[in-house]
């Protein structure tokens, strides 16, 4: 679960943090698309390097590196499934790099944008409030669920549970004492939040206003232009130069 740290907003005063969430979201989506489009190690490495620059500017490289440890499990799953189902070591590397590129595309965005900013951006885009609110709540609750997971994990370890014991099937079975309390707690909280929102008249007014309107600045236009250049370059690489 430590990889979730790369998606937790950190209050910092940086160029990236000051950008409008809409321009950041656009660049993030473009980076994700490009990560999926290519299976060439060179392109993926360039993409990751670019994202590292963004993370450096957002003063969030530390969080990103610590989250990589959490991805090790997924890398192992990728390599094992590749080797079991006729893939090669090379495709294992490509898929792992793609996973890093994909998670980094979202990581710098979530590390530098508050859930409220993201919700505002979605509202401005015309999405219904039920959807934007659910989305921002989900983001805001990632750290809460992570803390709860840690507490449950500690509690079960104190009862002699050893996750690393036994074979693959035993390890999966050992997760149950952690996942069940986590799931029950999350569902209960969902009902409590729904009640708390209802008693505060959530959804009573169909027209909503915002007290902090979003405004695009020069930096945001630069990000939008960079996103457009990235899309054109990716298409050119794929279609003209035939890069895989």
């Amino acid at each position: 679960m430590s990889f979730l740290r790369a998606f937790k907003y950190r209050r910092k005063d940086t160029v990236v943090h000051r950008l409008d969430p809409r321009s950041k979201f656009l660049l993030s989506v473009v980076l994700m698309m490009v990560s999926i489009m290519f299976a060439d190690i060179r392109v993926l490495l360039v993409l990751i390097s670019g994202q590292l620059i963004l993370l450096f500017l957002a003063k969030s490289l530390g969080e990103w590196f610590s989250s990589l440890r959490g991805l090790v499990f997924f890398f192992a799953v990728i390599f094992i499934t590749q080797l079991l189902f006729g893939g090669t070591f090379y495709t294992g590397i490509v898929l792992s790099l793609r996973l890093v590129a994909l998670s980094s595309s979202m990581s710098w965005f979530f590390l530098s944008s508050t859930p409220e900013d993201i919700g505002r951006a979605m509202s401005v885009a015309g999405l219904p409030i039920e959807l934007t609110f659910s989305f921002t709540m989900a983001i805001r609750f990632i750290p809460v669920i992570y803390d709860e997971f840690q507490s449950i994990y500690d509690t079960q370890r104190s009862r002699g549970l050893e996750l690393e014991k036994g074979g693959f099937r035993d390890r999966i079975r050992n997760l149950m004492p952690i996942l069940i309390p986590l799931l029950v707690g999350t569902i209960r909280r969902t009902y409590e939040i729904a009640d708390a929102m209802e008693v505060r008249a959530f959804g009573a007014s169909p027209k909503r206003t915002t007290y902090k309107p979003l405004k695009l600045k020069s930096g945001d236009y630069i990000v939008c232009i960079a996103s457009a250049i990235l899309v054109v370059s990716a298409l050119a690489l794929k279609m003209v130069y035939g890069v895989e």
């Binding site: 507490s151 509690t155 370890r157 002699g160 309390p181």
Partner: peptide, 22 residues
């Protein structure tokens, strides 16, 4: 010592009992 080895001697009850029920 592993947590399990210590737990055999030192029991720990979490403040939230629901964190252990499954």
């Amino acid at each position: 010592l592993s947590v399990a080895k210590i737990a055999r001697k030192i029991g720990f009850v979490n403040h939230n009992p629901e964190h252990q029920f499954f």
